[in-house]
Design a protein around this nucleic acid. Structure first.
Lengths: 107, 107
DNA sequence: TTGATGTATTCGGATAGGCGAATACATGAA
DNA sequence: TTCATGTATTCGCCTATCCGAATACATCAA
């Protein structure tokens, strides 16, 4: 890499964005913000297959966005930091504003 | 898609995250926040090849994160909305906090 | 129209990411 | 230990992403 500014923190930063760069993972994050949940509960609530949810959760855990806690044979997933939801909300709001401005221009 | 909650806005939302999910694009966004720039200036300042920067800029433009303005044969790129930088900063801060908490636990 | 400058695209190859289906693994109760 | 429940992983396949290198395209001045 010839770009000296690409340091470790930048990589981690982009990893976090990447982790949120899948619509199903965004749904999972919002669902866990609403309430920590077992994998199966999450799968049922979102209408997704359990292995799919489990795979996405692994990614979110590797990126330190969610954490786990055993509950008998089940595993409870919860957000590590609720501020990430705030970040997502802000992003969503900016997106909405930009879209609104664009449709103003087009009309 | 069997998941009814996966609507258009969710897709756009994840597209934005995805757009920021590359370290070079994060650098580009911060550089443009500092100052709008030509493609070549951006490439020089970041130490990246011009075609690479151009390709990344196209992605950022398609996702409505940056906008363009001709300046003779050159093209000036600028951020559509500076709040996206604020979002990135917040994300970075949360990341830092989480990392700090983890190293506390490990020590 | 030609040349200089600046920008965008194409091509090919390598890598990563996503999914369904099947299956392996872990935990606790009986 | 055995079973039931819940979770994680593997496999094969397909698609998406990224890059370097080369090249095409756009704009303006002369």
């Amino acid at each position: 890499m010839t770009c000296p500014q690409l340091e470790e923190l930048d990589l981690l930063h982009s990893h976090i964005c990447q982790a949120m760069g899948d619509p199903k993972r965004i749904l999972i994050l919002y669902a866990l913000h609403e309430q920590p949940r077992h994998v199966t509960a999450l799968a049922d609530d979102l209408g997704l297959p359990q292995p799919t949810v489990s795979r996405h959760l692994r990614i979110l855990r590797q990126r330190a966005l969610v954490t786990t806690q055993r509950d008998g044979p089940a595993v409870v997933y919860r957000l590590v930091d609720d501020r990430m939801i705030h970040v997502l909300d802000e992003m969503r709001q900016v997106l909405r504003d930009v879209m609104a401005r664009q449709s103003e221009i087009l009309s």
